[in-house]
Amino acid sequence: MDRLNVQDEISRNKFKSLVLVGIVFLSLIFLAYAIAQFYDPASAYLFVTVALIFSLLFTIFSYYYSDKIVLASVRARPANKKEHAYLVNVVEELALAAGISAPKIYVIDSDEINAFATGRNYEHGVICVTSGLMNILNRSELEGVIAHEMSHIKNYDVRFATLVAVMVGMIIIISDLFRRSLWFGGGRSRDRDNKGGGILQIVGLVFLILAPIFVKLIQLAISRKREYLADSNGAFLTRYPEGLASALEKIKKNNKGELKVSRAVASLFIANPFSAKKVAEMISTHPDIDSRIKKLRSM
C-alpha cells in the first residue's frame, strides 16, 4: 500500500516539475512579448526570439544547478565526517531505511533549528541542516527531522520544490526589475501613444503584476500538503513519530525567525524560517506547527 502511495507521489512530482518548467518557459516568452508591446511593438519578434533562447538556457540551467543556487543562497558549507560524525551517521542510517543512496550533507551556521532537502534525483540528493539543529536536538529528534527530509528526496518533492524556488524566485526578480524601470523611466513610452497595443499593454501589465503572485499561490497550495506527507512518511521510516513531534516542539520554542534566507527558498525548509509576524504579512508557506505535532502524536 505504502509502495503505491510513494510511487504515485513520485510520478505526480515528476509531472508537476514538467508542468512547472513548461509554465515558466511560456510565461517568460509571453513576458518578453508584453514588454515588447509596451516599449516598442515593432521589435516583438526580436524580443520573443531572444526570450526563446534565454528561456531554453534558463530552464536547462535551473534543472542542473538549482540545488547549487539554493545552497549558495543560504551560505551552506559541506559537512564532514570528522566534525559532524553524529549527523553523518544519522543521515546514512535513514538513507538505508529509505533504500536510497546517502545524500550529501550541508550545514548552515545559525542558532535557529531548521533543515531542508534539495536536489533533482536520488543520486543528487542534498540534506542541509543548521548548526543549531545539531546542538539542540537529541538523537531521536534529529532522526525525525532527517527522516522527514529523506522522504522529500524519496518522493521527488525536492526536484519540484527546488525548481519552484529557483524558477519562481527568478520570475519575481525579473518582473520586479521591469516594474521598477516602469516607475522610474517608463514615462517615455506613454508619450508615443500606441493605440493598437493598448489592450495588450494592459493585459501584459496585469500579467506582469499577477504572474509572481499567481505562481507563488501555486507554490503555497503544494507546500502545505507535502509537509504533512513528509511528516508521515518520515515517521514511517523511523517507526517513531514522537521523535519528529518533539523536534517540532523545540523548533516552535527555540526559533525566533532570525535565519537570513531569501523568500524564494523559504518553502523548502521544514519549519518556516521567518517569524510569525512576518509570516502573517506574507501568507504562510507552511502548515501550522501545532497541527503537525497533533497529527504526529495521533499516529
Binding site: 505504502d2 560524525a85 542510517e93
Partner: peptide, 27 residues
C-alpha cells in the same frame, strides 16, 4: 566515545536496512 557512536550507528543501520529488506520482500 568514538567507537560507541560508530557501533550504535552500525546497530541502527542494521536495524534500518533490515526494515528496508523486509519492506522490499513484502512488495
Amino acid at each position: 566515545m568514538m567507537l560507541q557512536e560508530e557501533l550504535s550507528a552500525v546497530e541502527n543501520k542494521i536495524a534500518y536496512s533490515r526494515q528496508f529488506y523486509n519492506d522490499s520482500i513484502l512488495m
